[in-house]
Design a protein around this nucleic acid. Structure first.
Lengths: 207, 207
DNA sequence: GCATAATGTAGAACAAGTTTCAGACTTGAT
DNA sequence: ATCAAGTCTGAAACTTGTTCTACATTATGC
């Protein structure tokens, strides 16, 4: 039996009423919608507010900046992705290949909505300290997805966690180079496969 | 005798007059100056123009956007870094350690000017397609630095180039996490050392 | 049910990146 | 030396993220 990842969710500061939850949802939906065509620049706060049927001030109460909004959007999308990926776990045998397979699956999903990917990833890497908690949540989610894919029997070692961190770095940065047209899909694939080799290197057996 | 990296410079589109070269230099200096305290946000185009003693329109003729300006600033700084690093090549024996040592040295240099680092790295990862050529130049420079540090006897293999790409990804992304306060200096060090292990993995001897 | 604090709305106002434009200044070829 | 083309300047205008304000609506404790 493989290790279950702990639930990775927001701390849910104050409980929201139903209408508030609905507003929040409408906002995130509008955000993803606008991001879907046009990417980062197309997500204009006024438009998001209008599309969500909410005043600009309210939008800012829910998400204190455009970057907060887009990072929350990413969190939302990642959640979906995680459940989707869990449905059909990677087929490969060794952990490295499983992780590579999972990331490539995620990558193909992103390719279907490149503009949305652009908005989310750009926001993620552009986020400054004021967005750290939210970005951290996204990071934990990503880590959970990768650890899931590894299908470990037991808790990961410190070395393995380091490898996962590096994989995450590569994942984000490779996405950026692809989104900005400086790397091909094939190149991203190679980069992912290359970095996943670190997993073999840090397998506990080899100590 | 180790392989000499080819010169990595800008294509130098139209030759600039002396006064233009001086203007360009003043602009870059002002940019680095302002970035040095305050980071990305402190680099305000009007202020750069004023500090450089040029009109706003002129600034935009030289650098078509703030991101272009900051990426050019990074290019400039990297150039310095490269020559500085070359003066004292890394002491370690194996290539992986040499690269890690070099990157850590660069990292320490950045730590001395964290705000400047912030401005440059944020601009680099935020850059969209319109800045691709400039970002590419920065990337080639970084690659050159890493290959230099490896101290190869012969031209790098495709595998080694992949490893270098991944190292670069990790380098940028790790810097981001450090700059946004989500990773400690120690953590960045670990990440760098972890990813550098890929170099051993791709050494031609092991084929 | 009511007082009140919190939340939401509309819209103006502000900040900084970017664009535009008319006129002055350089430069380079003749 | 002169004319044309290209460059620079100063200043205003425009765009979009963000903040603020005055007022309406909703939620909550009593």
């Amino acid at each position: 039996m493989t290790v279950e990842a702990k639930a990775v969710t927001t701390p849910a500061s104050p409980p929201l009423t139903e209408r508030q939850e609905a507003r929040r949802r409408r906002i995130l939906h509008a955000s993803a919608q606008l991001a879907g065509r046009g990417g980062f620049d197309a997500v204009q706060m006024r438009e998001v507010a209008e599309a969500a049927g909410v005043a600009l001030g309210t939008l800012y109460r829910y998400f204190p900046s455009k970057v907060h909004l887009l990072v929350a959007t990413m969190q939302d999308q990642l959640q979906h992705m995680h459940t989707t990926l869990r449905k059909r776990p990677p087929a490969a045998e060794d952990p490295a290949a499983r992780v590579a397979e999972t990331l490539m699956r995620a990558f193909r999903a992103l390719q279907r909505e490149p503009h949305l990917a652009d908005a989310m990833v750009r926001a993620l890497t552009f986020a400054d300290r004021s967005v750290s908690p939210e970005v951290d949540t996204v990071s934990r989610l990503t880590t959970a997805i990768i650890l899931d894919a590894m299908g470990l029997e037991s808790a990961p070692t410190a070395e393995q966690l380091s490898a996962v961190r590096v994989i995450e770095h590569t994942w984000h940065s490779a996405l950026i180079t692809w989104l900005s047209g400086r790397a091909s899909i094939a190149q991203v694939k190679i980069d992912i496969e290359t970095v996943c080799r670190l997993i073999d290197l840090t397998a506990p057996e080899r100590a």
